Lab assay of single mutants.
Amino acid sequence: MGFKLLSKLLVYLTASIMAIASPLAFSVDSSGEYPTVSEIPVGEVRLYQIADGVWSHIATQSFDGAVYPSNGLIVRDGDELLLIDTAWGAKNTAALLAEIEKQIGLPVTRAVSTHFHDDRVGGVDVLRAAGVATYASPSTRRLAEVEGNEIPTHSLEGLSSSGDAVRFGPVELFYPGAAHSTDNLIVYVPSASVLYGGCAIYELSRTSAGNVADADLAEWPTSIERIQQHYPEAQFVIPGHGLPGGLDLLKHTTNVVKAHTNRSVVE
């Protein structure tokens, strides 16, 4: 069995187990497998329904001669939608809004960016022009300005110390501490036991640490421990890039980060 097929099978099995364990909360999309990078042309966006009122959005972007996937989250909030992270750029984010209108038909009224990198804030200006209120932590807003990236308009308070959590509509926002970046936030959907790890969490097929220019490698494993301790009931975990899975993604990420750190020390 090929690795790609095995990865998709694991996603399907995880979703099936969740649907059985929580039949009222989960209505997993039966329309197909989780979209992969090879299936999404740059400039297009796919939506994948995880649970009743919960979707991931998947886009792709060219970077350094390669094409990478990027995940975000959409959560229903009454007759409105909360968006977590842009679709990595203005063109993708405009396509995301169009796809949401086509498939869901509810307005996106608020959006949260989970850290300051372009795959999370690139497209904020498109959201703002569409009347979406954009939010991020003060740290993310400051770092985005320093980096020359787009800056969300509103500040999220109460997320300055490791372990801080605040309720934001249908989700809980959690600051686990520094990891992929010093400002990275985690998003949890309690009604569906869905954990969105953003770039602080890796997919299972990833074996290298990737972009760690703004990471705190020493603190990252401790931050992941905080996530595990705060959300032990999480059933569906979405990484910032690639295929979702279960809580095993947290341990896998820790292993990859520690291996990278150990290699760096040896070198």
Rank of each mutant, 00 (worst) to 15 (best):
V28E: 07
L173E: 02
N92C: 03
G122F: 04
G163H: 14
S139E: 09
G89E: 02
L73D: 02
T254F: 14
L10F: 13
G240W: 02
Y68K: 05
D125C: 03
E33D: 14
L217Q: 08
E147D: 08
E150S: 06
D125N: 05
V132C: 04
D164N: 14
S155W: 06
D164A: 14
L73T: 03
I84N: 00
A19Q: 15
L81N: 01
R226I: 04
E157L: 15
G246M: 07
L83Q: 09
S162H: 07
S162L: 14
N255I: 07
D29F: 12
V189Q: 04
S7D: 10
E33R: 07
I104M: 15
Y12Q: 08
M1L: 03
T114A: 01
L82K: 00
E101L: 14
S161C: 14
G89S: 08
E145W: 10
V11I: 05
L5H: 04
A98H: 14
R46N: 04
N149P: 08
L73Y: 01
R76W: 08
T93E: 00
I50P: 04
S22G: 10
A95I: 09
G89F: 03
P69T: 07
R263G: 11
I58C: 07
L82H: 14
N92I: 04
G32P: 15
S139Y: 06
G122W: 10
D118M: 07
A19T: 05
A59N: 05
V166Q: 10
A98E: 15
L159P: 05
V194C: 00
Q235D: 06
E219M: 07
A259F: 04
T254R: 11
L243S: 12
L97W: 04
T114N: 00
G197S: 03
N92D: 03
V257T: 14
G89A: 04
G242H: 03
L204F: 06
R120C: 03
T253E: 00
P190V: 12
G158A: 15
A136D: 02
L96E: 01
G197I: 01
S113A: 14
P41E: 12
V212F: 15
P190C: 03
V194Q: 00
K4M: 14
D85N: 13
P35C: 15
V75M: 07
V265P: 06
V45F: 03
T182N: 05
P239I: 01
I84R: 00
G242R: 03
A259H: 06
A15I: 04
Y196M: 04
A129L: 15
G32I: 04
F3H: 12
S137T: 06
A95T: 13
V28M: 06
R226L: 05
S139R: 09
Q103G: 13
T36I: 05
Q61H: 07
R141Q: 04
D119E: 02
K8V: 06
I17P: 03
D214F: 06
A111Y: 13
L9E: 07
H180R: 01
G242E: 02
L97R: 03
H115L: 01
F26E: 04
D118V: 08
A144G: 10
A90W: 13
A200N: 00
A165C: 14
Y12M: 08
P190K: 09
L249W: 01
L73F: 04
D29Y: 11
L10M: 09
E145C: 11
E267T: 15
I238E: 01
Y48V: 09
A129D: 14
I227K: 02
F174P: 02
K4I: 15
Q228S: 12
S7M: 05
K91M: 15
N184W: 01
N149I: 11
N92T: 15
V171A: 10
I186D: 00
T222L: 09
D125F: 04
S155E: 09
L249K: 01
N262S: 08
L13P: 09
Y48M: 05
V146P: 10
F26M: 09
H252V: 10
D79L: 14
T109Q: 08
P221V: 14
E267H: 15
S31R: 12
F116S: 15
L82Y: 10
A111V: 07
I84W: 01
V112I: 05
G78W: 08
G89Q: 07
A234T: 11
V171P: 02
G43N: 15
